[in-house]
Design a protein around this nucleic acid. Sequence first.
DNA 1: ATATAGTTTAACTATTTGGTTAACAAAATT
DNA 2: AATTTTGTTAACCAAATAGTTAAACTATAT
Lengths: 203, 203
Amino acid sequence: MDKIKTENTETEILIAAKEIFQQKGMAGARMQEIADKAKINKALLHYYYRSKQLLFEAVFKSAFSLLAPQLNKVLNDDSDLFEKIRKFTENYVSFVIKHPYLPNFVIQELNKNPEFVQKLRSEKNFPSIEKFKLQVSDAINQGIIKPIEAEQLFINIISLNIFPFIGEPLLMALVNMDKESYNKILENRKTEVAEFIINSIKI
Amino acid sequence: MDKIKTENTETEILIAAKEIFQQKGMAGARMQEIADKAKINKALLHYYYRSKQLLFEAVFKSAFSLLAPQLNKVLNDDSDLFEKIRKFTENYVSFVIKHPYLPNFVIQELNKNPEFVQKLRSEKNFPSIEKFKLQVSDAINQGIIKPIEAEQLFINIISLNIFPFIGEPLLMALVNMDKESYNKILENRKTEVAEFIINSIKI
DNA sequence: ATATAGTTTAACTATTTGGTTAACAAAATT
DNA sequence: AATTTTGTTAACCAAATAGTTAAACTATAT
């Protein structure tokens, strides 16, 4: 079957490219290495994706389309503010275990190529903070939480959840732990981080 | 004067290499570009630093030796716990303005090369968390702060301070702000972050 | 069976890139 | 002043790398 075969190869390439690009970045990745990992001839990469740049963009968009729903769990979910902070924090660890290099990859490539943001912004499902802002100001008005800018709270939530993974090699060294102990720390954060945040803002 | 001329060239190379490596990473940097920026012949790079790898290591160590004292402001400073959280948070923003690419560079290259940590650990001035751990358990025993693992608190402090810079392109897009507004947010964090942390842990 | 359209590969090309060499220039040493 | 040492450059080299081509192969439709 033509269709299936094509889709398989195309998907195999994307899977292989994801792994290589996410571990080594655009500059560090080699087309040959991607071809090897996908077990195909290098020319096929170009047959399906034309160039390294286009293959990279396919990988990048695919990566972001996995990350966006995670972020939307904080920004565009109907549940109660405290509840969603708890849920997001718990979920995020599992998400990163499934896609260890993904958040770092997205952030890193955005740093090297900030104009890339434009391409993402225009796409559907790009997270919007508006709903979250309303929810925060509601909670403040109702006297549930102390006054805080929604943006600051959002940045805090994201920072506390994402950075421990991105900074893992550095943090592991600083707290003087091996991988195993550090993983326990991360595991504890599933609940610790949410309580840390809620403690800070609740009245 | 031989000595002065040599030191100038060597320093010029290091300055140029810092800029290029920190913006483009090890894989993305080009020796020719470094030479151009330092306004010298490419062969001189090899004359002074032998190889790209060694030049990179010189830059990396130099970068880390700037970052380490910052981290030590949290870990090995004599002042009161709340006081040092406030001071660190305020200082850190100024530090990053002076060295915008530095923290991201260090973290990024550690991620691509985790065994690099060993090289740093053995060096003098590598921050140690021991003193901070004592300080935290003292504060807990004295009923000043709620029980919390020192490692978790440390990770929180670092995350809240470093991530908003590393994730800047992503966060800017998510909170839907331009550079100017986002800078104001960062400026506010000089005090906001410390209060956020202290609010969470104080009794 | 055979033409057709899509898929895959081996071999090749052009360019980039880290690194070297040999000659030259400038200081330092004698 | 002559010689040695150090600093600098232009030209070069070999390996790596993204991308191309043309031919072979495969499956399907006619």
